[in-house]
Design a protein around this nucleic acid. Structure first.
Lengths: 177, 177
DNA sequence: TTATATATACAGAAAAAACTGTACGAAGTG
DNA sequence: CACTTCGTACAGTTTTTTCTGTATATATAA
């Protein structure tokens, strides 16, 4: 095996591992490999180059790159004189990690907190209602306690996200040992 | 709308929000709703009760509950005199959160680090090889640098996982404000 | 042990997602 | 302007996943 092939194989191994673990980011192995190709490529790539490299349609590259861009893992760049769109990976993986989980966690947190708050209000109304029986009130009370616990958890999650967004997390868990 | 219905609706809203956000945990909305049902139920449930509550087959409940158990979100319990398997949610969401992400992150980290280490060794061999041209060596060198950066990142991720596993994270981001 | 209840393996049906090729609109060029 | 090139919307196809019903294995009680 010559040197070029050995390098290629070394890349292939890492790309394969990468793409297998990208499901953590909710990304299919195909898109994972796309990311891997972009990761090892010197400089940005066009949709056509990706298409050639992976043997997949340009349409798939377009949607794949869109997914990765939405996840802030890839960004569009621009080079003078080049008409085609160019894309490159966000090289800072700490940033990629934070961006991804912050977006997801914050979204989940917001949605669930909103639902919880509305439901808490309603349950409190049930308890305040003169017509509610004692049994019903007890059920409502139990749900309220459950939801308050959940609320506390989501507030914690929000603070965790804050720590990632501000970079404060790196004071606690430093980048280098 | 009577009180029971209002409570039911309050639960429904939260379950819906929960299940929509469970894709973060790589779980389908169906299984998310199953989790929600278990979450609000007082005491553990049998497969049959889940089946009735969701209007889905018992087979689906069996596989769904297995998924949730693997994720440590649900656990099997036992009650004297009850022959059926009983399941209940892990109530501590901090624990659920940590368990899930630690398992996933650690797995990804291990796999990728293993691939990276093997490839690094190979690339170093390419550089050491007398027969390699200067251009090839430069490419290998560039890849080595990339992989070393990745390695550093994964070491950080491992330390982050450690902080969750030991509970040290709660010293930095306390559960209550 | 037998009778009975319970959970899961498996095959097939239904639903969802991934992927492709074509077509069309937008953007750049002469 | 006309002409070319590029990216993506869309429809259709293939692949994968989800879900169900049946059949079988396992466990419990008498």
């Amino acid at each position: 095996m010559n040197a070029e092939e050995r390098i290629e194989k070394a890349r292939e191994r890492v790309i394969e591992a990468l793409s297998k673990n990208m499901d953590l980011y909710g990304v299919t192995p195909s898109i994972g490999r796309l990311y891997g190709i972009l990761y090892f490529n010197d400089g940005p790539m066009t949709l056509e180059e990706m298409s050639d490299a992976l043997g997949m349609s340009k349409t798939s590259m377009s949607t794949g790159v869109k997914t990765l861009t939405d996840l802030k893992m890839v960004e569009k760049t621009w080079k003078k004189g080049v008409r085609k769109d160019l894309y490159r990976v966000e090289e800072d993986w700490y940033e990629t990690f934070s961006e991804f989980f912050c977006i997801k966690w914050r979204k989940g947190s917001d949605m669930n907190l909103a639902a919880i708050e509305r439901s808490l209000t309603e349950l409190q109304a049930v308890i305040a209602d003169e017509e509610s029986s004692e049994e019903v009130k007890a059920v409502a009370q139990k749900d309220i306690e459950r939801l308050q616990q959940a609320q506390e958890y989501y507030h914690w999650l929000n603070r965790l996200v804050d720590a990632f967004e501000t970079g404060e997390i790196f004071n606690h868990i430093p980048r280098k040992e």
